[in-house]
Write a protein that binds this DNA or RNA. Structure first.
Lengths: 148, 148
DNA sequence: GAATATATTAGAATGATTATAAATCAATAT
DNA sequence: ATATTGATTTATAATCATTCTAATATATTC
């Protein structure tokens, strides 16, 4: 399954005329395999073994290339670093405000909201972003302990 | 109407035990009056006349105070500075990817999504954030001209 | 009014991201 | 094969939003 995603992604790059370098291959692969929506720095550190000379700038550069090719979405936060999400089908993010964990959940796209918003504002709509914030089980439990 | 909002906000602060300083009053007032969802720096610059000695840190500090009191929401973006939104009733944001403009639109809260997400992930849900991205009329028109 | 707590200020520090310039690599034409 | 050209990577410096720190000022309590 993730092999298919990788293959599709590489095809997309090829048809877009983006050269597939070893670094790009590795970054994509890591993005697809990891379920953690990593930051640029996490990707950088994870690939240190394979590419001891790789620069952080390369990670950022290529994440931008992937974003422009529509392969990757950037999830931005105020305080902390952006996280990068390989684009698959309709899913949204549940974010734990205790530990920062991000969990995907599938939900049908909110097309009616897009249409409504477009109608009211006169904008041409491209996309939308929905995130739900809460506290995960682990954090709920450790918070319970704290109170004692 | 905005006077009521200001009064409510000041009441909230008073009951929360937050001291109302001239700077805090001015920042709140500006947030409520301005429809532009300003950045911290915009607020800082806007109040330079009234408070020539005010520090940017004061703006940030107090925006955090307001956020913790539930009066203000922070809208974060990857590249650019956070924007701050005075909390009123159910509304979401339409964001122009051409010029960065933010337009509010009212829409009933997506409670069923929150419930669904909570059920699926086991998180305790606090809130959610929805943004719709698109292109505003002005940018659509100027893009049309560009093509010629 | 003195003592104490809270806010503000000014400026330094942090940390994510981007820009720059040099070095390396890939592709194509010679 | 080799030279040429353009794209990619690297290393490092620069930028910019935000936070931290220490000193000063302001408000509150006794």
């Amino acid at each position: 399954m993730s092999e298919l995603h990788l293959k599709d992604a590489l095809d997309t790059l090829k048809t877009t005329g983006v050269r597939i370098t070893p670094q790009r291959h590795a970054i994509l692969e890591y993005l697809i395999e990891s379920m953690t929506h990593p930051t640029a720095d996490e990707i950088y550190k994870a690939l240190e073994g394979k590419f001891p000379n790789m620069s952080v700038a390369t990670v950022y550069n290529n994440l931008r290339v992937f974003r422009e090719a529509g392969l990757v979405k950037e999830l931005t936060y105020g305080d902390a670093a952006s996280r990068f999400d390989f684009v698959t089908n309709d899913h949204y993010h549940m974010i734990c405000q205790g530990c920062g964990k991000i969990v995907d959940f599938h939900y049908p796209g909110l097309n009616e909201v897009e249409q409504f918003a477009s109608h009211v504002t006169g904008f041409k709509v491209h996309s939308h972003r929905l995130e739900v914030y809460g506290t995960c089980q682990e954090c709920l439990e450790s918070a319970g302990k704290q109170v004692l």
